[in-house]
């Protein structure tokens, strides 16, 4: 415990020294490949600041979307809901789901809230927005590609990613519209590892 505190303290000291810090810095003893090392400012559907690392310690399912999307994004929400249902009941409550919008301009907090309601998202789900630069950085660590069209629509690759308790990407699936059993097994494994 003492050594951990010391590590944290020295990490903080280092951080304070690096005044002109880049967007992304290690703050804690996170693994080097943890996406929680990304420094980005998110706001959730309740208008609260959302820290990526706030879910440290539990597996998280992550995907990206935008509310104005009529074709694939509803399928993404539905696929996640089905995936969660495929887990043993005691595990469902412990899974966190993070949905990041490609479209912070139009996906205001109110729109995110409405989208969450429309898809029946409970408190396990966080629908978040960030600056366009931070959205691109998050997409970059997730390996998600997207571009905005002049019409305001977005083209984007669609995948669900599973982060382990330390924020490392441990599994991804491009299966949409049905449940990827391998992906469910990976979530189950991550949740079991924490219990």
């Amino acid at each position: 415990m003492t050594s951990l505190s010391l590590t944290r303290r020295s990490a903080l000291a280092l951080l304070a020294l690096a005044a002109a810090a880049p967007p992304a810095l290690a703050a804690d003893a996170l693994p080097g490949d943890s996406i929680y090392r990304l420094r980005a400012g998110f706001t959730d559907q309740d208008g609260l600041a959302y820290d990526l690392a706030s879910t440290r310690g539990a597996p998280v399912l992550v995907s990206m979307f935008y509310s104005g999307c009529e074709m694939v994004c509803p399928v993404i929400f539905e696929t996640i809901a089905q995936t969660v249902k495929a887990l043993p009941a005691p595990e469902r409550a412990r899974l966190r789901i993070l949905m990041v919008t490609f479209d912070p301009e139009r996906d205001t907090v109110d729109v995110l809230k409405a989208t969450a309601r429309r898809h029946g998202c409970d408190e396990r789900w966080r629908l978040v927005r960030a600056s366009q630069a931070d959205v691109r950085r998050l997409a970059a660590v997730l390996g998600v590609q997207y571009r905005q069209l002049p019409s305001g629509e977005f083209n984007h690759s669609s995948s669900l990613l599973l982060l382990d308790a330390e924020g490392r990407i441990v599994k991804r699936t491009g299966v949409l519209g049905s449940v990827d059993t391998g992906f469910v097994a990976a979530i189950h494994g991550s949740l079991a590892a924490r219990s």
Binding site: C69, M71, V72, C73, V75, R136, A139, A140, V144, Q145, Y146, R147, Q148, L149, E153, F154, N155, H156, S157, S158, G174, L176, G177
Partner: peptide, 29 residues
């Protein structure tokens, strides 16, 4: 900056249905 916006369809003839689920909106460019 937007390197991850530059995804292209391997074959532009496939930009219809097969890509609809992979690429939301109207398919890869």
């Amino acid at each position: 900056d937007d390197f991850n916006a530059l995804f292209i369809a391997g074959d532009s003839r496939t930009q219809g249905d097969p890509d609809l689920l992979k690429f939301c909106g109207s398919g890869a460019i």
